[in-house]
Design a protein around this nucleic acid. Structure first.
Lengths: 172, 172
DNA sequence: AACACACTTCACACATGTGTGAAGGATCTG
DNA sequence: CAGATCCTTCACACATGTGTGAAGTGTGTT
């Protein structure tokens, strides 16, 4: 019986973490249910889930899962797969370059930011204080976007470097 | 009369831009009214505003301004000042290193992100797939945070370089 | 061909958050 | 000291968005 109780504790601890993680994702603009599903898929051990597994794992209604996975698939964080001879879609979180793809979406947001500000610069011109402030804002956004883009491109190499540093014996 | 009509057109165009800009800021997590006030203070020509000027300029109630400026002051995007012998606070958008300060707050969010994920790594350990995914996530967040931090530090110099490039005659 | 199952869609109850209008407090003016 | 003005606070009406339960659709099973 001790084993079962420990398993329940583990699961509760996992769900608490999922809520904590999801809260941060929500602050970053993600909707509540997609945030939960994503956090759960990332933290639990499986690498592919049916909609039903997600619903039971998070203890929410299948209807809530439906909308959440659609948004996550559209966002590119989850991929829908279909095993022949089964009637359930499988949702897989392909962790290969997951965060690079995530950041690509963030960079698009930054681009929209930049576009909006550029419209303001065109409207006001550089002769007025407001226009000059907006121009500096636009320049900063462009600079930041280029820097983040570069960092995201460098990440795969950096990740491999970190992994090599942590497994110094596996060089051959 | 043509002048007055053109002024109205300009003001309407400005307010349209403010709404567009505010929408992007809201997508980035800012509340609607603070987003509008900030966008307006940035884009309009004055560099300091009373609460009443903001209310009239945006055509919203003074009550709405009150909450918005408090949040912006707390956030560090607006500074409250008091001219002696007047009964109105002045809100000034000190544009000196405005975006560096803005990004400092964003970096704090990223730090919370990292902390939440680190908690998950401690919970799950590196022997389970979920734990390993979370560990890579944590490493990415740390990497990205360091990169953005570096970029923000480089920005003042980059800004001056851009300004110098646009005014090549004003070298001495 | 009928059934069973898994997921999706839809309408609704619910919670959350937002801006307005009215009342209250503080500060300068006469 | 009375009056006026400006801002703030509070309660409310409103809109927005969220997750559940029930009905509907498609697919594999018997």
């Amino acid at each position: 019986m001790g084993t079962a109780a420990a398993g329940d504790d583990d699961r509760m601890a996992l769900l608490r973490f999922v809520e904590r993680f999801a809260l941060v994702l929500r602050e970053a603009g993600m909707a509540p249910m997609p945030a939960r599903v994503f956090a759960y898929a990332l933290a639990d051990d499986a690498d592919r889930y049916t909609a039903g597994e997600l619903a039971r794992g998070l203890d929410v209604s299948p209807a809530a899962i439906s909308g959440a996975v659609r948004q996550l698939v559209q966002f590119g964080l989850l991929v829908r797969e279909r095993e022949p001879g089964t009637r359930s879609d499988l949702y897989v979180l392909d962790d290969r370059d997951l965060w690079s793809r995530f950041m690509a979406a963030e960079l698009a947001t930054l681009q929209r930011f930049e576009d909006a500000v550029t419209g303001g610069v065109d409207l006001l011109g550089l002769d007025r204080p407001g226009g000059r402030r907006l121009a500096e804002t636009r320049d900063f956004m462009a600079f930041l976007r280029a820097e983040i883009d570069g960092a995201v491109r460098r990440w795969p190499a950096e990740r491999d470097r970190l992994a090599a540093g942590r497994r110094p014996a596996s060089t051959g």
